[in-house]
Computed example of a mutant assay.
Amino acid sequence: MEYTTVKFIHLLGAVLFLGNIIVTAVWKSLADRTGNPVIIAFACRLVNITDLAFTALGAALVVIGGIGLFHAGGIAISDSPHLTIGISLFAMAAVLWLTGLLPLQLYMSKLAAKTAAAGQATMPEAYGKCVKLWTVLGIIATVLPLGTLWFMIAR
């Protein structure tokens, strides 16, 4: 593939990935602040949908574009320690998302949907505990790829 094409794929993936994780955190936090189970259930469902549509797609494009850039640019990873650090941070974010955030999001979504369907006016205490953990893990899972971005552009 041509260098410009794989660079475009890589950057498009970074924009989709980073844009979605940051925007999702904002609007999910705002939905949680309402305390309204119907709004929270809707937001949780959309977190799951947009994670598949934008975060996973963005991550895949980042990986595909990154591999393409290595090949098209003739880059040797052994000569690029900043890229090794960036790739490591990205991998840590992926592991954190797959093992922590994703299962937590699915659980919160089910809990919120069940609460809304039951017509309850408030979310259960378990949901609040999940939100705290999701926030901490989410901050870490956002800082890691921002670090990746830094190491990919700074030498």
Rank of each mutant, 00 (worst) to 15 (best):
V23D: 15
T99M: 15
V63R: 05
E125N: 10
T4A: 15
A25I: 09
V23Y: 13
L11M: 06
L137H: 01
V131A: 04
E2H: 15
I39R: 08
T135H: 03
G66A: 05
R155M: 13
L137M: 14
H71P: 12
F70H: 12
S109Y: 04
L61M: 07
G19L: 10
L30F: 13
Q105F: 09
L149V: 03
A53L: 15
K132W: 09
M108K: 09
K110V: 14
P103I: 00
A31D: 04
P103L: 01
L101V: 06
P124C: 05
F70E: 04
L96W: 01
T135P: 01
A59T: 00
L30E: 14
I77P: 07
W27N: 10
S78H: 15
G73N: 08
C130D: 13
I85P: 10
H82K: 11
A14E: 05
I77V: 15
I139W: 03
G73S: 11
K28G: 05
L30G: 07
T122Y: 14
C44F: 11
G13T: 01
S80A: 15
T4W: 14
W134F: 11
I49A: 12
A72I: 08
E125F: 00
T122I: 15
K110T: 14
D32K: 04
L11G: 04
A91P: 03
A117P: 03
S109N: 10
A94E: 07
L137I: 12
V95G: 06
I64R: 02
L57T: 14
S109W: 00
A59N: 11
T115A: 01
T4G: 14
K7R: 14
F70N: 06
R45I: 09
L83S: 00
L89R: 04
P103A: 10
A31P: 02
T148C: 03
V26R: 11
V131K: 03
I77H: 13
K132S: 10
A93W: 02
L104D: 06
Y127V: 02
L98Q: 13
A31R: 01
A25L: 13
L98E: 10
V38E: 13
T122R: 15
G13M: 00
N36H: 12
K28F: 12
A14C: 00
L146V: 06
V6D: 09
L89K: 07
A94L: 12
W97S: 11
L137S: 08
L137V: 14
A53I: 14
I140S: 00
I22K: 06
T55S: 08
L11P: 05
L30C: 13
V38N: 11
L104T: 05
A126V: 06
R155I: 08
L106C: 05
W27M: 04
A141Y: 03
D79I: 10
L11W: 05
I22S: 11
G74Y: 11
W27A: 05
I139R: 05
L144R: 04
T142M: 13
K28T: 13
T122K: 15
S109V: 09
V131H: 02
I64D: 07
K7D: 12
T34R: 03
F42Q: 13
D32G: 11
W134I: 06
G66F: 00
A43Q: 09
F54W: 04
T148W: 00
I49F: 02
L61K: 03
I153L: 08
I75T: 12
L57P: 03
